[in-house]
């Protein structure tokens, strides 16, 4: 008698959910829609030098906290990155992320994030799919009116159209989050690095640096 792997997975997830649900509900569900503006610096080195584009992007996200120890965030942003020199085409960057956080303590969270990103030029579109596993440190400041945030993650699964998966992909971020109910805000610096396998053209590296300023409203107020 064999057990179907799919049903096994369902049972495991259900058991995990059941275990987690026994933890006391300490707060009501909160939802925080917000908008942000970011300045993105995207750099690519395919063996021909630094191909750098940059520009502002606009985005929005919704963060839902079903309990005091979990958060789910859906984020989307898009913008056009222009090259620093005339050798390259401008490209449109679009990104959609779904992340979940589980707080082991009030100041330490483990994160899992799925991301779909695309870079579109006049010639082609490059699609990125990735999964990030990481942790986040939140240290309260100003009696809880702000938090110092440090975030580190690895991307164990990255799929890029037309390219092999990178040998190394990592992300890090640092910044502040503010809360003056019902308003929330943040200023973050985030950084991504991808090292691809060496091809006939040589090693390929990509790097994304971003500074984000965000403001939102938390519900219920």
């Amino acid at each position: 008698m064999s057990v179907c792997p799919r049903w096994t997975l369902v049972l495991v997830v259900a058991a995990a959910a059941g275990g987690l649900s026994t933890r006391p509900m300490q707060a009501q569900i909160t939802a925080t829609p917000s908008v942000f503006v970011a300045y993105v610096n995207h750099q690519v080195d395919e063996g021909f030098g630094d191909e750098r584009t940059s520009g502002p992007v606009l985005g929005a996200d919704v963060r839902v906290a079903p309990t005091s120890w979990t958060e789910v965030t859906l984020t989307g942003y898009a913008g056009t990155l222009t090259p620093d020199s005339g050798q390259f085409d401008a490209r449109r960057m679009s990104d959609l992320e779904l992340s979940g956080s589980l707080f082991a303590t009030p100041w330490l969270a483990f994160q899992l994030e799925a991301r779909a990103r695309s870079y579109t030029t006049s010639l082609a579109r490059q699609r990125w799919l990735s999964l990030t596993v990481g942790g986040e440190l939140r240290e309260p400041m100003f009696d809880g009116a702000a938090q110092a945030v440090l975030r580190v993650g690895l991307l164990p699964a990255v799929d890029v159209s037309g390219l092999p998966s990178p040998n190394f992909a990592g992300t890090a971020a640092a910044g502040f989050q503010f809360l003056r109910a019902p308003l929330t805000g943040s200023v973050m610096f985030s950084f991504e690095r991808y090292d691809f396998p060496t091809t006939s053209n040589g090693p390929r590296s990509e790097q994304v640096a971003m500074v984000t300023a965000q403001i939102g409203v938390r519900f219920p107020r």
């Binding site: 610096n41 080195d45 640092a174 610096f189 950084f191 690095r193 590296s205 790097q207 640096a209």
Partner: peptide
């Protein structure tokens, strides 16, 4: 200061040396 230092250090530590100049500005 820790957050500020992290923003400065991240591009230096995680970034590719050839790319670090522009990312350092954002950090």
């Amino acid at each position: 200061l820790g957050v500020g230092l992290a923003a400065l250090v991240i591009p230096e530590v995680f970034g590719k040396r050839e790319f670090s100049a522009s990312a350092r500005g954002l950090g």
